[in-house]
Design a protein around this nucleic acid. Structure first.
Lengths: 250, 250
DNA sequence: CTCCGTTGTTGCACATGTTGCAACCGCCAG
DNA sequence: CTGGCGGTTGCAACATGTGCAACAACGGAG
């Protein structure tokens, strides 16, 4: 493991929070100012950091690489037009989460029309047990993979409706599989609800999910359930674009 | 300058192109496989790389940091809803480019409805002399800044309509300033045209520009000019959201 | 205007972290 | 079964990264 590279990556994380001075970076890393300066120079030269008003912030080359990486996921460019239309028809925020390796992450987000913004962020992991997209993916994993996920979950009680045990989550996933869609009824943030449905790849495996999400004051769960026919049609269309040929709903 | 960090960043650039094996990474850097392996392990641990099917590709943590960085730009979250609506009304791709330090970069892009995709990419620099957004920003820079930009441009003739001299560019920028908008008539890619207008910050300085862009087969320049009232209104709205209070068009 | 403290920067000696090597393991094709 | 290839690891050598001391610039207080 490379200590120098770890330091550099740690700097990038630190300056992404908000612009930072050289001294703050040196303090954060616990190194001499001259060490921090050299690391920052190298990050700047590579486009991963830049200086604005005497403070260091993230460089635009990193942003370009991130977009390049998203385009490589295959799913994002295929799904994005569908998500935009779905968000447009319902006026609510739409998320796409994908199973990437052994975690589920948000890979796209299309904002709804309202002024309220949801805190989810592309690139970040999903809470698999509280989020609609997490449950919509977990419900269709093979048992061994699913149990590995369940074993890693902390079952924290974020709100009164959070799922707090593996048994309760298994029951919820069984319900999800039976009806073909998942929901989040304020289980992570009390004021947010969503419905979600799975997306299949060419071989019929569930690799992603899409959700329609809104603050409950604007759209309680019952109202979001009204989006389900359109949502599951959208997921079927994305699945077909990925080469899935199954006739029934994904 | 840190050689080890340079190597790590070079690895991230290399694997962002497409997934790469350990041997390819070692060959690209000119180092031993064990050296490349240690660097990749550190990048993986920091979330900047991951393994898929025995090959290394970009990690999702980098994607999350990029979105965080874009949110820090102040402009992107403010402008994005306006861009989405503008793209929706016209059905064409909309770009937002921002003056960041001493370069102009694409910071947002909302795809149009057609199947054709434009090659522009968020995070990447703009060609200031061929692109509408580049010209819309350059036209309003103070003379010293503008001349610095003009001095750095290579004036390559990408197409028959490219601007190929500083004099021609100065004339074009004067026209842009006089009429309040810029255009790209296939100057970088012959098949693409656009119109663009400037965005001002709270102090009235032009800090960004928005363009409506389309393949010429779908929307020749004359047709895109029809979008100009809506485009300049949108830029005025974004400018007001940034605190600009000038009464006339930006 | 002067002085002091803070921040950013640089040259250099040296400590240490990085590096390549050799060997190993697993896999696959012949 | 064998050989080649790719991924991995322990270790000694050495090349690089590091902290230190000193310097310059800047801003604020007196």
């Amino acid at each position: 493991m490379s200590q120098t590279v770890q330091r550099a990556l740690s700097i990038v994380e630190f300056i992404a929070e908000r612009p930072r001075s050289l001294g703050e970076v040196a303090g954060h890393l616990g190194v001499h100012r001259s060490t921090a300066l050299r690391l920052l120079h190298t990050l700047r030269e590579g486009g991963f950091a830049r200086i604005v008003g005497g403070r260091y912030t993230v460089g635009l080359r990193l942003v370009a690489l991130a977009h390049q990486a998203l385009d490589q996921l295959d799913l994002h460019p295929v799904a994005h037009p569908h998500l935009v239309r779905l968000a447009d028809r319902h006026g609510h925020t739409v998320h796409l989460a994908q199973l990437v390796g052994d975690e589920i992450v948000y890979v796209d987000k299309v904002d709804g029309r309202g002024a309220l913004r949801l805190s989810s962020r592309v690139g970040r992991p999903v809470n698999p047990q509280t989020s609609g997209v997490g449950k919509a993916i977990l419900a269709y994993l093979d048992e061994a993979s699913r149990e590995r996920f369940l074993a890693r979950i902390s079952y924290q009680a974020y709100t009164a409706t959070s799922i707090t045990s593996p048994e309760a989550l298994r029951a919820e996933l069984a319900r999800t599989a039976a009806r073909g869609w998942a929901e989040d009824d304020g289980e992570y943030e009390e004021v947010v609800a969503c419905v979600a449905a799975p997306v299949r790849d060419a071989r019929g495996r569930v690799v992603a999910a899409v959700s329609v999400t809104a603050p409950r004051v604007l759209a309680p769960l019952e109202r979001l359930r009204g989006c389900l026919p359109d949502l599951t049609d959208t997921c079927a269309a994305i699945s077909r674009d990925l080469g899935w040929t199954g006739g029934d709903q994904p």
